[in-house]
Design a protein around this nucleic acid. Sequence first.
DNA 1: CCAAAATGTGACCAACTGGTCATTATATTT
DNA 2: AAATATAATGACCAGTTGGTCACATTTTGG
Lengths: 217, 217
Amino acid sequence: MSKTTFTNLSSEKQERFIQAALTEFAANDFQSASITAIVKELGIAKGSVYQYFDDKLDLWLYLKKHCEQVKLSYIKSIKRSEYSDFWKFYRAMYANGINFDLENPLCSQFLYRVGFKEMSPQVMPHLNTWKKQANAMFCQLIEAEKKAGTFNKKNSTDVMAHFMVTMSMSIAELLQKKYKVDFEKNIKKGKPLFGGNSKELMKAVDELIGLLEKALK
Amino acid sequence: MSKTTFTNLSSEKQERFIQAALTEFAANDFQSASITAIVKELGIAKGSVYQYFDDKLDLWLYLKKHCEQVKLSYIKSIKRSEYSDFWKFYRAMYANGINFDLENPLCSQFLYRVGFKEMSPQVMPHLNTWKKQANAMFCQLIEAEKKAGTFNKKNSTDVMAHFMVTMSMSIAELLQKKYKVDFEKNIKKGKPLFGGNSKELMKAVDELIGLLEKALK
DNA sequence: CCAAAATGTGACCAACTGGTCATTATATTT
DNA sequence: AAATATAATGACCAGTTGGTCACATTTTGG
């Protein structure tokens, strides 16, 4: 997971490298992402990449861990115990997730790829870790809510968890459809992923959460 | 869309070719799918492919249309008017969809890729056509149900449609999670996608539809 | 039976890929 | 200032790709 040569680099250089690599890996899947394209963009020699990382997979894993940590920093601050109602808690978590998207479009796009689109055989063994974690977390939450009586006990926990995880992550697509947000364009122009219309956006989110609520409680 | 040279081929040869191409394009995204691999598998010359199709994209588009037609043949037989209850109708449609999966694992896997995982820039303009159609169809259905009073009028049609389409298509993932069905393995072994446990499967489907029903009515 | 049309072929091409490594340049320490 | 350790380089490699085209083979119909 990244050689000392990379960690020894000045943090500016590291950041520049990460940005360039992320841009490439956010726009292409593992197989198609090109190391050559990254070094060309950075104006460095290809050999340098292999002074920093063992190989392409090593770089990918580093980027993945990096982005996951950034995302985690947005989410872990929200605690269930600080909210009276589960759905208020859920909504707060969601809002933070959107903040993450707005402030880290590249990370967001890359993780979207990793979580939803990636199927390259080389990385298959390293997928699902995040989704599995999210799923496990939701299962735990749901069990607790069942005990508290706010969730329907008749439905199996894993189906409910699947329901929530899927809908949570599908919001992006809804927004693309409903508001014709063009993520790719926004990324290329350096704009925030949602182009700025967060209010409209939260309305759609609210409606979707409302549906979830009706389904599960 | 495919040259006369291909349509002139005996239907056995056509079928063999389609199977081989589909196998490759079901297992790899557009960029990574290899024409060389297809001709090697078939034992024909690479030049032949370009006697049949203009280029890689032309072949892909042909496969897409082919699979969509096969899928459509399973779905179009189900008519809303023949069911008293929307959810019975929906369930019947879903059962037919699963039949399609069982009987055409390669088509199914390929369409799954096209609809969910594909992001190769070359094919981007040709994506979403199916999803858009599905979405439009659901919007129409929902509007009708709203008028009949069986769907909640307070929720916007497009959010509801998104809800249904997303959940419908996510079933595959749920089954992978819940029953640890390994699609890739089943495909390689020539088994049906779900390995045969259709009963267990329909139970999960029923539960999910139950959740949808609660959310929307 | 032969000519003409339709199919099939595979060596070949340019463009790319991830990865290597001997060499050079730059810091750091003695 | 010399010696050593660290970092950067880019020509080069073997392997891949989609696509071409002059040629060989087969099928067709007069």
